[in-house]
Amino acid sequence: MSLDKATVAKIAHLARIKVPEADQDHLAQELSAILAFVAQLDEVDTEGVAPMTSVVEHALRWRDDVIDDGGNVERVVSNAPEQVAGFYVVPKVVE
């Protein structure tokens, strides 16, 4: 399985990482090499094998319905690159 430039551009956009066109070929080669490497898995017979969901063998634990967090705006916005009146601020989005 090898990746072409267009696919690199597509997944780069999906991942929201700008990849200049000049880098796409090189990246396509690198990613194709990795895909060639992982293609070995095709040799493994996995008929009827359940995919691993967790290596931990215990039940999912539940929390009680108790409010024990929040209520501290400063704590959640203090690291924001841009904030106004407790809001995070981003470039305008058109819906």
């Binding site: 992982v38 898995l41 095709d42 493994v44 996995t46 094998v49 359940a50 995919p51 691993m52 969901t53 290596v55």
Partner: peptide, 14 residues
């Protein structure tokens, strides 16, 4: 082809 397959092989490895 990739992720699901890998998680199945992971079961085999375990």
């Amino acid at each position: 082809a990739y992720y699901l397959k890998a998680q199945k092989v992971r079961t085999r490895i375990a």
